[in-house]
């Protein structure tokens, strides 16, 4: 994927030069290994700032709402599905957007790499299917790229953008041999008490910084329910019940909208996998309504429509 960089710059430069767009939203090289920073460029000569590699995990759909400019944005499979969701929900206008599709082979999980590496990492590079980690003490380690992908990327079945105006490369082959719901089935199999303890343990480290919410392209409410004061839905302290209420309710707000882009988990400073919550709802939507979020512009979301043949299994 690292070879995309040249193409990314080339496209950005052209779009700015011929005034097709006012700004291009992409990534620039970060100051940390395995980190890139979302950025915008408005001048063609700045196009060389842009990069593309396995560290572009942040969902750029997040940066489109509330802007007035005509924008070109780079979009992986998940980003593109969130852009579709934004368009369907009237948060962005299709005709103000040039979507540059980036067929994706998954993003690197920096925490996974760090935890499997002894010593401090100085730099990380990618060559083909390998991820090469250079250590500060001079040594180096090599990983098979597939072994160090983000959890959601490893199980992703929509790597190609679903909507685009042009592509930076040929479409990639979609994964068909993955068991997308294994972790959720495991939780579903737990009895009530065990499940409760599982979630207690999962959410215990939460510091309520709301990085998950803010990293999520779906969380664009002007005032989030946790911030409302009239009425005040939940307490602001570190009480476990308030923390749980935040996570559970946020997950429900994303039901039928979440594309499992992994931004929430990636952003969490204390490493909580809150995707286990959103994924369960993703699974339910899929099984009950054969619904996958953000796949097409002309379909209303599952929870947004009523059909006489909707399943009513929950009604006894």
């Amino acid at each position: 994927m690292i070879a995309y960089t040249d193409k990314v710059r080339q496209i950005a430069r052209r779009l700015l030069e011929d005034c097709s767009v006012e700004m291009v939203i992409g990534f620039r090289k970060g100051s940390q290994p395995m980190m890139n920073e979302p950025c915008f460029i408005k001048k063609a000569e700045d196009a060389d700032q842009l990069v593309w590699d396995g560290n572009c995990g942040i969902n750029l759909a997040n940066y489109l709402t509330g802007r007035k400019e005509k924008i070109a944005v780079f979009a992986k499979g998940c980003d593109s599905r969130n852009i579709v969701t934004h368009i369907v929900e009237n948060k962005v206008q299709r005709d103000r957007l040039v979507i540059i599709g980036v067929p994706c082979t998954g993003m690197i999980d920096k925490r996974l790499v760090a935890s499997q590496t002894e010593g401090e990492i100085e730099a990380v590079s990618e060559t083909g299917d390998k991820v090469v980690v250079k250590l500060k003490d001079g040594g180096s380690t090599e990983f098979d790229r597939r072994q160090v992908l983000q959890g959601n990327c490893a199980l992703c079945v929509h790597r190609n953008p679903v909507i685009y105006d042009e592509l930076v490369a040929d479409l990639v082959e979609e994964q068909t041999d993955v068991d997308h719901w294994a972790d959720i089935r495991e939780i579903e199999a737990m009895d009530v008490e065990k499940r409760r303890r599982f979630f207690e343990d999962l959410l215990a480290p939460c510091i309520r910084c709301y990085a998950c919410r803010n990293a999520c392209p779906l969380c664009y409410c002007p005032t989030c329910f946790v911030d409302e004061s009239r009425p005040q839905w939940l307490g602001k302290g570190q009480d476990q019940i308030d923390v749980h209420t935040f996570h559970f309710l946020r997950a429900f707000h994303c039901a039928g909208r979440c594309t499992d882009c992994g931004a929430c988990q990636r952003a969490c400073p204390v490493g909580i996998n809150m995707r286990l919550l959103t994924k369960k709802l993703e699974k339910d939507c899929f099984e009950l309504y054969q619904w996958e979020a953000g796949m097409a512009l002309d379909q209303r979301p599952a929870l947004d429509t009523y059909k006489p043949d909707d399943p009513e299994g929950f009604i006894k």
Binding site: V192, E193, R196, R197, F198, F199, H244, F248, L277
Partner: peptide
Amino acid sequence: MGVEPDRL
């Protein structure tokens, strides 16, 4: 999330 099914 640990709420008994009969509660809801």
